[in-house]
Nucleic acid binder design. Structure first.
Lengths: 180, 180
DNA sequence: CTCGTTACAGACCGTTTGGTCTGGTACGAG
DNA sequence: CTCGTACCAGACCAAACGGTCTGTAACGAG
């Protein structure tokens, strides 16, 4: 955990934390932004892999569509705890806020990563819901994404790490009530 | 519309857009952050005033608790359009993302403003819901806040201004389904 | 009229920071 | 052994930017 925020995290700080030199860093990365791209790309891949594993488990357990959708939502609640606990790196969280808002010159890799991310989410949720066609899957999966980002910000603002899970739980309960 | 993001918005840009000089600026504001504090404070006040007016209107129209809660949610949908249309200034939107995430050294005025903001939201939503005690008001009002911030980020990421309203509508429909 | 104060204009400065450049070392190929 | 190449260390640089400082004009009070 170096410091928070892309801009607030100086290259020098990364060097100090990783114990490398400037020469080494810029030998492997063309720019600071290049590192961010690599981190985000890897984070997206890891996140999707974990989510997919979770969903596969739900399918194999023979859960019904509604339960599978709930499992989908629960995944984020658990992820929230992990993120707020700091196990996951600081550059990982709230990618949207970081990249889309902070830095005006958004790089293609990250924008594309977000697109892929959302598409896969929608696919997984659609698969989970199966024959339940009474739900706008795309809108709902995006909403999870939105809540995730917003909840992170609120948790940071209040200083209460539990706030993130709580907010995601609110969403889950709403969806639960609607689906049942 | 100068530029996006607190850090990305240079003082020079503000001067150019407002047609003033550096001397004038720093005569009125102690620092760049001071301007942000003032803007946020004013934005919160304006926002709350508008929301209160809307809720008062709903009460005077004799709407039932559920309808009043829906009116509460609809307020944000309309606000979303206004914000994405650019009528409202760029520094106004996504205060949380701006201040809590971007700049590590958060100033007291803004943190406090966010607290007041959320408290008042909760009060207004509680009043709207009236005798309906089957809802966790605090959690729900915070959830609106969360969705608002997250939806803004998504809209910025996708480049589609309509995305913000769409996401807020998803939340409203969920709440609608639960309340009815 | 004058003098103090407020309001402003804009040149200038110090720091921060991403990125470069020079020099050096390990090492595999021939 | 030698030479080319990948890898790395860290001094150095140039641009950006928030903030200061000097100078000046309006202007109300006495």
């Amino acid at each position: 955990m170096i410091d928070n925020g892309f801009r607030a995290t100086t290259v020098e700080a990364v060097l100090a934390a990783s114990g490398t030199s400037k020469g080494a860093f810029f030998h492997h990365f063309a720019s600071k932004r290049d590192l961010a791209d690599a981190l985000v790309t890897q984070y997206v891949a890891d996140d999707l892999a974990m989510l997919e594993a979770g969903m596969t488990a739900a399918f194999e357990a023979g859960a019904d569509p509604t339960s599978r959708a709930i499992a989908f939502l629960r995944y984020y609640e658990d992820l929230a705890d992990e993120i707020m606990a700091g196990t996951t790196g600081c550059l990982y969280t709230s990618v949207l806020a970081e990249m889309e808002l902070v830095d005006a010159a958004t790089s293609d890799p990250i924008t594309k990563a977000v697109v892929v991310w959302r598409e896969r989410y929608a696919e997984l949720l659609a698969a989970a819901l199966g024959d339940r066609t009474d739900v706008d899957v795309d809108a709902l999966s995006d909403h999870v994404f939105v809540t995730f980002e917003g909840a992170y910000l609120l948790a940071r603002s209040t200083g209460d790490p539990g706030e993130m899970r709580r907010q995601l739980a609110v969403l889950r309960r709403l969806v639960e009530a609607v689906l049942r």
